[in-house]
Design a protein around this nucleic acid. Sequence first.
DNA 1: GCCAACGTTGGC
DNA 2: GCCAACGTTGGC
Length: 150
Amino acid sequence: MKYWLFKSEPDEFGIDDLAACQRERWDGIRNYQARNLLRDEVAVGDQVLLYHSSCKNVGVAGIAEVVAGAYPDPLQFDPDSKYFDPKSSPDKPRWISVDIAFVQKFARVLPLQTIKTMPALNEMVLVKQGRLSVQPVRAQEWQAIVAAVG
DNA sequence: GCCAACGTTGGC
DNA sequence: GCCAACGTTGGC
């Protein structure tokens, strides 16, 4: 079992939306590094930190679990979707989705600002490389984050 | 809304 | 295959 951090903009889809629908397809990932992780590394049962980006309270908002493994992102084939990719085809799909389920909403968002000050987290991908929307989290980082909000 | 960091595209 | 131009992400 592995740990991950998924970024989303809460204006589009945040922890409250996941709590409301309980289970959702994680789609629209259009970055090769993130795609490769979804395709090759992310597996059913893995635990996911849901991170809110580009909003007032930037930070880790809660926990989700991967409940369905990698499959082609259907939006890449939908001409009406903003995630449509004319260079992709069903027999050679380029982009990947997984399904996640709601586990927990933190009592408060753990702010990025705080994460940056925690010595246990100063090697996090989130801190070292700002712009990756699916990223691995080490077990000790996961524990430090859960302890900090608990 | 600005801008830095970084990924992608495309000319050569 | 290099690299400049361009686009996107995302914090502030």
